[in-house]
Every structure is written in structure tokens, then in C-alpha cells.
Design a protein around this nucleic acid. Sequence first.
DNA 1: GCGGCGGTTGTAAGCGCTTACACATCTAAG
DNA 2: CTTAGATGTGTAAGCGCTTACAACCGCCGC
Lengths: 333, 333
Amino acid sequence: MNIYDVSEKAGVSIATVSRVLNGNPNVSEQTKNKVLAVMEELGYTPNIFARGLGLNTMKTIGIMCTDSSDIYLANAVYYTEHELRSHDYDSILCCTGYDLENKKKSLELLLSKRVDAIIMVGSKFLEPKLEDNAYIIAASTQLPIMLVNGFLEGENIFCTLCDDFHAIYGVTDKLIKSGRHSLLYLYTSNSYSGARKREGYLAALSHNSMPVREQYMQMCKKDIKDARDTIIRLHRDGMQIDSVITSDDSLAVGALKFALLNQMSVPEDICIVGYNNSILATCAEPELTSIDTKVEALCVNTVNTLMRIFDGYDVPSRTMISADIVYRKTTNI
Amino acid sequence: MNIYDVSEKAGVSIATVSRVLNGNPNVSEQTKNKVLAVMEELGYTPNIFARGLGLNTMKTIGIMCTDSSDIYLANAVYYTEHELRSHDYDSILCCTGYDLENKKKSLELLLSKRVDAIIMVGSKFLEPKLEDNAYIIAASTQLPIMLVNGFLEGENIFCTLCDDFHAIYGVTDKLIKSGRHSLLYLYTSNSYSGARKREGYLAALSHNSMPVREQYMQMCKKDIKDARDTIIRLHRDGMQIDSVITSDDSLAVGALKFALLNQMSVPEDICIVGYNNSILATCAEPELTSIDTKVEALCVNTVNTLMRIFDGYDVPSRTMISADIVYRKTTNI
DNA sequence: GCGGCGGTTGTAAGCGCTTACACATCTAAG
DNA sequence: CTTAGATGTGTAAGCGCTTACAACCGCCGC
């Protein structure tokens, strides 16, 4: 079943059929209808490979995601895919994991699939090798590389960022102003976005003339138990803690478990702030104050920027979207 | 940059280059190495479209998922993608939503992409129209349709199911045996898997000679608050409840919130059982007893079955994987 | 009556790859 | 020494589509 079958049955040439297929205006209304009718009748579907061969594009975008089972990233993938589809683009999903070698392989795979652009979700972008990779792609192909909440500078690299700095700055500042002075910052990774959050925390301390104490910035796994145990350990070592600011809701839940074990009341004895405003925030008891990072807006902007690039417009290489603080029961600020 | 450039530079014919590309054994070690060296030097990447044109396959599987932002489905997509990749297949992700018209469009899109099979995740499979669609595909193409925890009968339709019946039967039975007699079953949808769970609940009642009371089977949205409010309403109307069995962890969390509001102690006054053993189960306080539905095993089995189909083996059209009850703090059975 | 001009359609040359078949070598058995 | 068979390589015909170019038609103005 190919274009010849259609052309034969419709009594026209394959060129005409192809024109109808591509919405070329140089076809009389009459012929067009006839061809369309035959296509319908035969249930004809154009062969995407042949088409791609000629056009050398497949209207397909590669999505690289470190871990699509992560709640936050799953949402990002979902919204990205959704928005792409509304623009008539498909996506090939590539879950790379955090291993650099795998990322590189995924990148090559997407390139070999002749995707029209690559959207990266959840990469850390502080790893020199990955930077190299992104640079190499951007340089060797004209492929736009879109980073969702990541940052790299480069010819064809475009970033849509959440304003993590001001989000963390905002809550930290409010907590301090409300009288808190032992603020633990618990984070999971040294990603670009992670670095911005950390800066926000530090800036708030500094603007309030509070000392920076290294042990009050602790890294742990993105895991409820690991977060809980980290705080338990710190507490046992005598650390005073009246607030926990985290880089992910799961850590905040860990903090909540710690408070429960120690019979500390939340938010009186200890304030807890989550991040990403995921379902964990409303699942927790009491419900978590959390930062809404506007995943959907981030993804929509990323895709729209990409579409503008395809259309030949100049676009800013960097867009910042501000986050919201969602106040719930784990703070009284 | 194409196969001709490589063949010329290597001083061989394009056929030889193609053979090297495809691992055809009829190439001398010497020539092969020369060709590989030239490819490397030129940074040659075969054009996937041309390849697809010749082979009429792209080693790509379409994944249809109703909502990849759902925790359970995100996991399923993740494992499926992962397993496919380990078999050297790519996936095109299509989030269809629950609208039938969209599902149909997604189906057509995947077909037009010439995917080699379709894996459906999270479809309800009780909707007549969708069945029709699946039947049409299965009949009109030779495309295998793989259902992850869904059930349809048809020529090229293969299902990997979680044994939801025995999972729910098991907990319900244990609860009854431990003395509970007012067991509320809270569920979200009338999917195939949902129907099996319900049957499990009913069977357990019946085997313990307990009456079936319609109002003890309640449907609500997959949403913490909606579940909570549903139970609050029932309770206010005077319903006795000493156990809540749910079809999703989020509903169980809702039940937990109800218990908290009513100062009922868990599990003494009320036992609560979740489903899917998601992160919500360990996020909740107390942690939820939940059913581990073995998503990974389900997905791995689905992909492996597909690979066997591709290799020409006969495979069962239906595989059942048993679920585990993970005992935590919301039950004392 | 003729050239020219839109509008419409057809012809044929790719796009980059796979692969059946043909052909050339070389080996080993008869 | 011949020859069947194994082994390695090349030729060329697709795969189904796009599109530049050519060709045709009817119609206009001169």
C-alpha cells in the first residue's frame, strides 16, 4: 500500500498525490477531493521513513530525562510531551540515568534517530563531560538543545529556568524574620538548580547578618529515610535546628518523620519547607509548605521557544520563571 | 556524509559498508576494520530513514500511556522504556489522556510512525470503543499489542497482568479473620484491573459468609482529599467502618486523614490498606500497609514477551504475576 | 492566429540504505 | 589438473516519498 496504489486508483500521478499529502495549493479542488477519497477508502498511511528520507526531518524531538520515575521529572516529561504533541511534534523518550556513559549513548542514539532538537530534563549540567557533549552536539549539528531548568552557555543551547534562587531566598528570609536562627538546608545534588537554591539560602543568611555554618548545609539522598536519618544524626550530635529548608519534598517528609520521632511539634518547634510542591506535600501530615516550581510553565515555555526557533525567530537563550511559595501547615510565616 | 563517502574513502563498495554496518559475517576481518576505521574518522552516522525505508522497521515501540504524570504509570513507563532500551529498541511515548478521541489519534500517530509494536499502559480496557480500536489494529496490521495490566482478547493482543484478585482477596480475608467486619472498599475506576480487585473483595466477603453491602463499595477520584471527603460523608451518615481497603495509595492516605480528623487510632480503630506500594505508602504517617504490584516485573515481562514474539516464538497471550502484601503500620494482621 | 501566462498535472531524478544475485578468488577433494 | 564449494566483494534494483522541471490546457490580449 503506497503512493502508487493511491495514484493509480485515483487516476492521477504520484506527484499529485504527494501534493495533496503535503497540502500543496497547486492542486485543483476536484482532484484533491478525489485523491482524499481514495486515500480514505484504501486506508492509506504515508510511510514516514520515505518521507523522512526526502525531507530529512521527522518532526520528532528527543527528550533526555535522567529518571522519569521521579515524581518531578515524570511531570516534566508529561507536560513536555503534551505540549510537543499540541504542536504536532512527537517525542522519543530516553531515560539516561545518572551515568555519564549512558547519557552519551542516549545522546548518540537520539542523534542517529535524526531528531529535530533535544530537550534535556533533569540533567545536572555541572558535570564537565556532559557539558562537553552538549557543546559538541550544539557545535557539530545545528540541533537546538533545550534545557529544562538547567543552564549551559552555547551557540544552540536554550534554557528555561525556574527562579530557584529567589524561591529559597524568600522562604529563608521569612523564616529568619519570624525569629528562626538555626536553619538547616538539606539538599540532594549539586546540579545547576541545586547551586542556585544554595545561593538563595546563603544570600538570605547574609542579608540578615547571620553567620554561615557549613554543617547547616547537608547533602543526602533523595529519599525520605535518608533525610530523616541525616537529621537524626545531626540532632544527636547536638545540633540546634528550628527550621529545615529542603530541595525536595521527600527530604521535607524525612524532616517531618524526624520531628515526629522527637516529639517536636510542627511548626512551633520546627518549621519545615519542601520543594516542588509534589503530591508528597499534601500527603504529609501536617501538609507541607512547599515551593511550586511551575513545571508546566517551564515545559510549555521550553517547547514554545523551540517552536519559535524552528520558525526562524530570534529567541532569548535564557528565560526565567518565578516560583511560588505555597503556605501550608509546616510553617507559621 | 553518506555510505558512498565511506565506501569511496575505504576503497570498497557500498554493499560492503552496509554489511559492516549490519554485522553481516560475510566480510573479511581486514576489510571490516578498514571500514570501521573510516567510519570513525569521518564520524559517519547511518541515516535512520533510509535504513527504515529498506528494512521497514525502525526498532521503535510505541508506548501509549493515559497519564505519565501518575506515580504508578510513570514507573511503568520508566521500566518499560528501560527494558526496551536494553533490547536495543527505542520508544515513542504518547500520553493519551483518558479521552477516547485522543487515544484514537495517538494510535493512528503511532501507526503512521511505523512502530513495531504498541505497549499500552494504564488504559482501562473496558471502554467498548477502545476495544474496537485495538481489535482494528490487531486485525489490520500484524502489530503486536501489549497490554500492561489490562486485558483484551484478540489475535495479536498479549497481556501481562498483576494478580489483583488474589492481592485484594488476601488482605480482605486476613482483615476479616482478624475480626474486622465493616470493611469499606474504596476504588477509583472501572478498569479491568479495577474489576478484578472488586471481585477479590467480594470473594473474600463471600468465603467468610459475610453480607455484601453495596454502600461499602465506594468510588471516588484518585485524589487524597476526595477520598477523605468521601469517607467523612459516609461516616457522618452513620456508617460503621473498621477497615478501608483501597485501589490506590492516594485513597489510603485520604482514609488516614479521615482517621486523624476523627481521632481514630490506626490500626486499632481502623485498618487501612493502600495499593501500588508507591512512595506515598512510606510518606504517610503511620506508614501504609500496601500491595506491591510488581510494576517492574510486569514491564520486564511485557517487553520480554514482545522480544520473543519478534523472534518468532509462540508466547502465551496472557501472563499473570502475583502481587505481594507489604505489611506496615496501618494494619495489625 | 499567435505568444504568453496562470493553473494544473506528469515525469523522472534523487534521498541513503539493504540485499538478491552475480562474479571473482581460493581451497580442498576427486 | 579439474571442479565443487566456500568465501569475499561488487552491481544494481528497489524501498516510498519529494520536488525541480517539463508539459499541457484554456484563455487572454494583441
